[in-house]
Amino acid sequence: MVFQIILLIMLAYVVGFIYFGLYRNITARIQGRYRPTVYQSFYDSIKLFSKKQSVSYGWMFYLGPIIMATGAVLTLILVPVFSDSDFLRSVTSQGNLFVLLYLMVLGPLGNALAVGTGGNPFGVMGVVRGLTRLIGLELPFYIAVVGLIIAANSSDIVHIIDMQKIGGLNIINHPLLFIGAMISMVGFFGESPFDIPGAPQEVYSGPRTEFSGKFLALLMSQGSLFAFAKLVLIVDLFLGGADSLEMLVLKTFAIFVSIIFIGIVYGRYKVEQAVDFLMKLPTLIAVLGLARVVWFG
C-alpha cells in the first residue's frame, strides 16, 4: 500500500508538472509568443528546491506550505484513480465526497496562516480575496456534488463510478450539473476570469508573495499534485472514472484543456463581480440540474 501511494504521488507529480508545462506552452501559442519547453516547470521546481530562502518569519511561516502539501496528498490518496483495479481501494474507501469537499479547502486555509504570519498585507489581501471568492465559487460545485450524491444515494466515490457503469456517464445524464461544476473548476484551477487571489499585477502573487526557496518549490509541487487530484475527481464524478493509464491521461487532459481554453479568452473579474456572476447563472444552471435529480430521479 505504501508503495502504491508513493507510485501515485510520483505519477501525479509528473503528470501535474507536464500539464502545467503544457498549459504555459498552449497559452503562449494562443497569445502568439515564444513558448517555454514542456519540462520548464520541472527545471523550476528542482532549481527552487536547491535555492536558499531569502527571509524567515518563524515556525508558523514554514508550517503553512507543509499543511497545504499534506492536504493535497491526502486529497490525492482519497480520490480513486483507477476505477476497476484494487489500486489503493482500501484507502479510498475510507473517505467520501464530503471529506474531499472540505480537504480541498484545508490546504489553502493552512497556507493562509503562514501568509498571515509573513505579515505582507498583499499576501493577506490575496487570501481574503480568495476566501471571499470561495463564497461564490463553491456554490455551483457544491450543488453539482450534492446532486450526484442524491442521484447515487451515496457519498462514496467508488459507488458513484460504479453507478455510471450501469446507467451511463453522468456528463450525459446530468449535463447541467456538469456545466455548473466545470465553471467552478475554472476558478479552482486559478484560471481567468476567477484568478483573483494570485492576481500578479494587483497583489504581487497574492498568497505566494513572501515564499522563496524550498517552500516555494513545495507550494509548486503540491499545486501540481492537487491539480491532478482535482482532475481525477472530475473524471470520476462525471466521466465514469478511468480503467487504464491511457484513459486516465486522455480524460484528464480533455478536462484540463477545456479549462485552459475557457481561462485564456477571458479577462479577470473583480472579486465582487466574480461572486455576483457565480451566484447567478452557474448557480441557476446547477440548481436546475439538482431539481431534475431530486424531483424526477
Binding site: 456554490l139 457544491y142 442524491i150 439538482l290
Partner: peptide
C-alpha cells in the same frame, strides 16, 4: 441527504464556506 432536502444542504454548505472568512 437522507431526507433529500437538497437546498437545505446547499444552504448549510454555503454558510460553511462563508464561515471560513470569519474563522480566518
Amino acid at each position: 441527504i437522507d431526507t433529500k432536502f437538497a437546498l437545505i444542504l446547499i444552504g448549510m454548505l454555503f454558510s460553511g464556506a462563508a464561515s471560513f472568512l470569519y474563522c480566518y
